[in-house]
């Protein structure tokens, strides 16, 4: 079954959707959308370094994404004007990564694959890495769910319950870096944020508790992956962007449904 490229693509996409769902909820609740961008864009720089120094790609991506996450969070703790600083880091690292890939590698690298993903080229070994990483993210999120939720509500309240907000923030950063490392092959550095944010945002409109929002985001993410893959196959369009388009369509539909529901209640 794993011999079929389409099946491998679907399994890879499902792994990414499942990992991105709970994490994406926190990205939305903690208003970290730009943070996610910065982490994902840093991955391009990580790819350049990994190719230049012959390191395994996932390791290079993970290290650079983690470094970016830690840098951004230490900036925020020192009270920098956050939005603009993040903007500089997010776009600066993307540009630096693109320049570095050309400068550091002599082979012709397929940039589009890293920017927009290449899910149809997922091999068995990639699938193993993707599922291992996704499982780690899901386990982290399940394990820290309540503590993270409390910190997200109010750090002092968390302290009063014996939870260390800094530790929980590090866990989000680690989960984000892991997700970037596994998702880059599937949707690419530019669209990872979309996989984090769109399913969770769509789920928000039709759910009433944080747990249901996480589950609904997972269902929406998986649906987007499967329909996006099918559509890309039929329409002969790039797969990563088609998956994100499918997610955006689900977002719009669930927005309309929630409007209709609340209108019928009033």
């Amino acid at each position: 079954m794993l011999d079929d490229f389409f099946t491998r693509a679907a399994l890879a996409g499902i792994a990414v959707a499942l990992a991105a769902a709970p994490l994406g909820c926190f990205v939305i609740w903690r208003r970290m959308a730009y943070f996610g961008d910065a982490t994902a864009h840093a991955a391009i720089l990580g790819i350049a370094l990994a190719l230049a120094f012959n390191i395994a790609l996932p390791v290079g991506i993970l290290a650079s994404a983690l470094a970016m996450g830690l840098a951004v969070s230490s900036l925020s703790r020192r009270g920098f004007s956050f939005d603009s600083a993040l903007g500089v880091l997010a776009h600066g690292s993307l540009a630096a990564g693109l320049v570095a890939i050309v400068l550091l590698t002599d082979t012709r690298v397929d940039l589009a694959a890293y920017l927009f993903g290449d899910i149809l080229a997922v091999r068995r070994v990639d699938l193993g890495v993707i599922w291992a990483g996704a499982a780690a993210v899901i386990a982290l999120m399940l394990w820290r769910w309540s503590a993270l939720l409390t910190v997200t509500l109010n750090p002092d309240l968390a302290r009063a319950s014996g939870i260390d907000p800094k530790r929980e923030e590090l866990i989000v950063i680690l989960a984000l870096a892991l997700t970037v490392a596994v998702a880059i092959k599937v949707v690419g550095a530019l669209l990872i944020s979309a996989m984090l944010i769109i399913p969770a945002a769509a789920a928000r409109m039709i759910t009433s508790t944080p747990e249901r929002m996480g589950l609904a985001a997972a269902a929406i993410g998986v649906t987007a992956v499967l329909t996006g893959l099918q559509a890309a196959f039929i329409l002969d369009t790039p797969t990563g962007p088609t998956i994100v388009c499918a997610a955006a369509i689900i977002f719009t539909v669930s927005g309309v449904i929630s409007r209709l529901l609340s209108a019928s209640q009033n």
Partner: peptide, 11 residues
């Protein structure tokens, strides 16, 4: 999204 009862129970 957060109901009152879920909020009370956290963490």
């Amino acid at each position: 999204p957060m109901t009152v009862s879920r909020f009370l129970a956290l963490p």
